[in-house]
Amino acid sequence: MNKTYIILAMILIILGLGMFVLESKEQATGLSPEELLFDLNENTRYITADELASRIIDGDPSVQLIDVRDPLAFRNFSLPGAKNLPLANLCSEDVKTFFTIPGKDFILYSNGDVESNKAWVLSQRLGYKRLYILKGGLNHWIATIIKPIRPAETEPREVFDRYEFRLGASQYFTGGEIAPASNTPFETISIERKKKKSAVEGGC
């Protein structure tokens, strides 16, 4: 009698331990290959440069830019508020907690969109949510937002509207470098005030 009870208890314990193994395996994998492919087929992961520019200018607090290039390239040039996350660091614990910040859209970018796609697939597999890719990367960003090209006269009205927006965005991101006419009055004012100050100092 006692032996059978012990055997039964052992079986139950082994089964219980087995449940632990199953559970931890499920947590480790995140998404399955099929789910990953499904997400990949939906092209909703891309965000255009115009959309991103208007969200940054509007001060959208949910925008969290992530630069997946190497630290040197990040130091040379990065978008406002971007955090540097090279591919090699993707699996660290800090990154895991970073991606759990609620209410953020994590927008990945690189120079093109190959590296950002890699980072997107790998982070998506780890189960991180709300991941996006800047379509065309920084090369496209500079070609459209920072250095917009004036469309031909024959282009439809929407293209000109978009060009106007990009001109404004370019001023926002470069500090008004593009239009010198509106920039000069500010400069003259600051110079005048500086001179007054120095005159007061000399008097005392």
Binding site: D113, V114, F186
Partner: peptide
């Protein structure tokens, strides 16, 4: 496509110096 098509460092310098000037005003 991952090769930088522009001189990023020069653009960054421009942005920093310009934003500094606008802050002074």
């Amino acid at each position: 496509v991952e090769q930088p098509a522009f001189n990023f460092a020069a653009i960054m310098q421009l942005m920093q110096s310009e934003s500094g000037a606008s802050q002074n005003s």
